[in-house]
């Protein structure tokens, strides 16, 4: 599958990323020159205290925000040169986003929520339904497909969000504090799903401030004041899974 990262190219490659809010003396440097390469199949945890710039980095990686300077290549494409509608396409096809606050659309069934990225991608109704059900099945919620978000527990909602993030077979799964609003049992469920996805060869970048969560990743990057201070790898990338 092409979307998993082509030809061993890095999924994600940022060089000297700077993000500044405000101007002149009151300017805040949220990111002060971050360079980072993520290979296909990697499982990266970005850690840092509040104000360290990790959310800013996440938003830029997710193409929700643009950097002040620096380049960002996603799956070999320089996204800093893309216009609004091309960025929408990148968000839709190459990135799966999991938010801390789930961000499911209210009064819309779990199935319809998962189908949404496919709907925007122009996938036919029948295929969309099939793929959305498969994704829900993968997170163990196929039997909750017709429930509205307010009929689901927090853990279930986040699992629906994970299903929605991976239904479009993105090159990169971004998770912004995915367990931040969950109890310990739901946290285990969701992290279990992410681990499983990575074992199947998905590239995952997650943001967290909890060590237990970061332990699931193969590589941990620490940000302080908008700069990477440590970048340690605990496990190598499972090349075999990536090749599948």
């Amino acid at each position: 599958m092409a979307a998993y990262g082509r030809d061993g190219r890095p999924v994600l490659e940022v060089t000297d990323l700077v993000k500044t809010y405000g101007e002149g003396e009151t300017a805040v440097h949220a990111l002060a020159g971050v360079s980072l390469v993520v290979e296909p199949g990697d499982y990266v945890a970005i850690m840092g205290s509040s104000g360290s710039g990790k959310s800013t980095l996440m938003n830029i990686l997710g193409c929700l925000d643009v950097p002040t300077s620096g380049t960002y290549r996603l799956d070999g494409v320089d996204v800093s040169e893309l216009n609004e509608s091309q960025l929408a396409l990148v968000r839709n096809r190459r990135i799966g986003f999991v938010f801390q606050s789930f961000n499911l659309i209210a009064r819309t069934s779990a199935l319809a929520n998962v189908e949404l990225p496919l709907a925007y991608a122009g996938v036919s109704r029948a295929e969309r339904r099939e793929r959305a059900l498969a994704a829900l099945d993968m997170v163990g919620l196929a039997n909750r497909a017709d429930h509205d978000p307010n009929q689901l527990s927090g853990g279930q909602q986040q699992r629906v969000a994970v299903a929605r993030a991976l239904v479009s077979r993105p090159a990169l799964l971004l998770a912004d504090e995915p367990t931040g609003n969950l109890d310990s049992r739901s946290t285990r469920d969701v992290l279990g799903i992410l681990d499983g996805l990575n074992a199947q060869g998905r590239t995952i970048v997650l943001i967290t401030h909890e060590d237990e969560v970061a332990e699931h990743a193969h590589r941990t990057i620490r940000l302080v004041d908008g700069q990477i201070v440590t970048d340690e790898r605990r496990r190598s990338i499972d090349r075999q899974a990536v090749a599948v």
């Binding site: 997710g62 929700l64 509608s85 929408a88 396409l89 990148v90 968000r91 839709n92 096809r93 986003f97 961000n103 499911l104 659309i105 949404l116 990225p117 925007y120 991608a121 929605r164 479009s168």
Partner: peptide, 8 residues
């Protein structure tokens, strides 16, 4: 959310 999911 819709925009993050790629709504043009």
């Amino acid at each position: 959310i819709r925009k993050a999911l790629g709504a043009p």
